[in-house]
Design a protein around this nucleic acid. Structure first.
Lengths: 145, 145
DNA sequence: CATAAATAGATCGTGATACGATGTATTTGT
DNA sequence: ACAAATACATCGTATCACGATCTATTTATG
């Protein structure tokens, strides 16, 4: 089974999750201020930040966001309704749908990306620190097995 | 306004978010395997990982999870129904409700904490790397302002 | 010390999200 | 040709988070 964790380890894990939540809370708030739901913002970033040569199909996007395809599809549907993305038939496989950002979608994403970059400059080190602490523990524990 | 980000910067931001999502996806899956909804797991960790001397009231927990009090309340209600936490009157202020883990709640949290520690040992470095990359960018950009 | 204001929690209704189950169109394999 | 696989779409359901509003308790003030 493995021994219980020390109280300090629970506190460090909690602090790590708190730092993640803090960052996500910032991100969600900013997205909503710009008329995007949090996951819709994530999908825009996933599309625009796709590695070269990866096709922007629903399935590919779903996989990169760790979602089921129909969940990604619903996000795309809402983003299309608000004009942030457009859909087009896959150029080689007509079953596929490729999703692209509209100029409006790019403008919103750019604004959010700038805000996130400056938030990361301000609060990222704290998150990195919390991660280092739990990583050190995880490693120590592993070597004691 | 600020200049647009380079394509590479969008890719690095996307990769960072992808690493976070990957970790959260692991966490959510594990929690559900043990009969907990993801946020219910987070609340258990927030309670058990509270710094010394901080009281486990609904408001305090909500604040630490960046939630409105009534959102935290609903999580507590569901956790109480499944027997993972218990509520008691605040010992000094009877308006308060203090939330504690039951032995069953502690057992589940412990199991999850162990799983998370080993996941962090395996995948944490990748997350840390992605964070380092965006932090470097954020810093560079700041110095160019 | 009576009572208004502030505080802590509880309740109700709503919208976004994510899923499983299932259906339709297109492509692939034999 | 046509069965199987693949990609997207639709439908119903549960969690989660919120705003608005209510009750109980504590605190501050005249």
């Amino acid at each position: 089974m493995g021994a219980d964790l020390r109280p300090e380890e629970y506190r460090d894990l909690a602090e790590f999750r708190r730092q993640i939540r803090k960052f996500l809370h910032f991100s969600e708030t900013k997205a909503k201020e710009d008329g995007l739901e949090p996951q819709q913002h994530q999908l825009l970033l996933a599309i625009h930040g796709l590695p070269e040569g990866v096709k922007p199909s629903i399935r590919e996007l779903a996989s990169r966001m760790f979602l089921q395809p129909h969940s990604a599809l619903e996000l795309v549907k809402r983003l299309e309704q608000t004009g942030a993305v457009s859909r087009s038939e896959g150029p080689e496989d007509r079953r596929e749908v490729w999703v692209r950002l509209t100029p409006a979608g790019r403008a919103t994403l750019r604004k959010l990306a700038l805000a996130h970059r400056s938030e990361l400059d301000a609060s990222g080190p704290e998150l990195a620190k919390a991660l280092q602490v739990v990583l050190r523990q995880a490693k120590e524990h592993k070597s004691n097995e």
